[in-house]
Amino acid sequence: MSRSGFKELAIAACLAILAGFVPLVFNNYWLSISVTAMMYIALCTSWVMFSGPTHYISLASGAFFGIGGYLVATGMSDYQMSFWLMAGISALVATILAGLIGAATLRLSGVYFVIFTLGLAEMIRNLVSWVQNNFLGSRGLYVLTDFTEAHIYWMLLVLAAAAYFLGWYINRSRLGFALRIIGNDETVARHVGINTATAKIVLFMTTGFFGALVGAVIAPRYSYIEPNQVFSPELSFMVVIMALLGGAGRLWGPIVGVIPFTLVWEYVSLQFPNQTTMFIGLIFLLIVFVLPNGIVGRLEQVAVKIRQGGH
């Protein structure tokens, strides 16, 4: 088990290095798609770390991502702070927020958690608009940096790799084992001595941390930011879809889900711009009814069948 774990890590490292060359070989159009894909890989990987083992569907990605983008924008625009400092602060804020949300909801059943995260991005958007309109003055924010698209891509790659490595490390730790037990049977988990609430909250906080950092890193891409446009409920759903499409049972599932989805999405939103919402709905239904364990789960099923056929 431990050897195959290192093999997996080695493969991931090779892939990450290969991915590092993308900006050098792709033209601007493909690089821009790659940035989007890398953004989702980072978000989905951190999502799977928490939601994969626990089966708690988090729709908070949009909120954390928004915190990253908004704090970077407002800090740089209104207070002349450096990008790096604001990125760090936003990660801290999102981590704390995730901890508070976790403390309020993760002690209870999973449904409360899903419901709480469902409207979260929208609610924070409302709050931010209100604060912005009444106290800070309503106007757009500028994120002016020297970062090129390639820089953003590399930063996202580093984040994705970091999330993957952390996930890999946690999977092999006592915390990861605890989460697998919680995902199986929470009552048993408590009765073998696991502090289930703490384990879940800690993991959820890492999701918040990465969500905000991704939001912060991608902010310079848009240079002009409407305070409330970064809190996008839709993003939360995209993360869930891509992660589940790939398969939440494996840490590398998102990579398998994000790449084809981003390409198809690009095509659909160009060809059928008015049908994108319906398309998302159909993919959700496809996942539930046809691919309940994602593409990875289906591949593994096929692999098992082939192996059994060989005997």
């Binding site: 919402t277 319906m278 998302i280 709905g281 239904l285």
Partner: peptide, 11 residues
């Protein structure tokens, strides 16, 4: 599944 339905209906 109901997420799927909701997006579909919105569409």
């Amino acid at each position: 599944a109901t997420f799927g339905m909701s997006f579909f209906i919105v569409g």
